[in-house]
């Protein structure tokens, strides 16, 4: 599917989504409360069939936190980048690890480094750092001195 066709079929599913073509991939921005339903459609829809989540990145945009999902279809080999952002004070994004299993570890990583709360995640704990670690190191306002040994 070309990017234009992708745009049309995604807008049919979720009219509030914002799509724009980036340098490399098609970008899709969606509100966090709509994200889980859209994700199910992205994977379940026969024409889209985004069954392979090849990257999940948590980003601190300064005033908001965001999660960037890179999705590919293993049948059609089209790629889409989904961006979901969340409030910095109470960052809540629905988990998608029931749709793409690989997200379970990736979301734990994003939680570990950026403190993004993935709602309904089965086992949201820190994955790399200690349980006692204070703060979230990949946030731009992180103060490393709180964890000096």
């Amino acid at each position: 599917m070309t990017n234009q066709e992708l745009k049309d079929s995604i807008l049919k599913i979720e009219p509030t989504a914002v799509l724009n073509e980036g340098k490399q991939y098609l970008n899709l921005t969606v509100a966090s409360d709509k994200w889980h339903d859209l994700a199910q459609q992205l994977k379940g829809n026969k024409e889209l069939a985004f069954d392979y989540l090849f990257n999940l990145t948590g980003v601190d945009y300064g005033d908001t936190l965001g999660v960037v999902y890179h999705l590919e279809s293993t049948t059609f080999h089209h790629v889409i980048v989904v961006k979901v952002s969340a409030d910095k004070q109470n960052p809540q994004i629905p988990t998608i690890c029931d749709i793409w299993r690989t997200a379970e570890f990736h979301e734990r990583e994003a939680f570990d480094f950026l403190g993004i709360q993935f709602t309904n995640h089965p086992d949201l704990r820190r994955i790399f750092l200690d349980e006692e670690w204070k703060g979230y190191p990949l946030r731009k306002d992180y103060d490393p001195s709180v964890n000096t040994i």
Binding site: D51, Y52, W100, R101
Partner: peptide, 8 residues
């Protein structure tokens, strides 16, 4: 195969 894709 499906699980392998799902798990990346």
């Amino acid at each position: 195969k499906e699980d392998a894709i799902s798990y990346g």
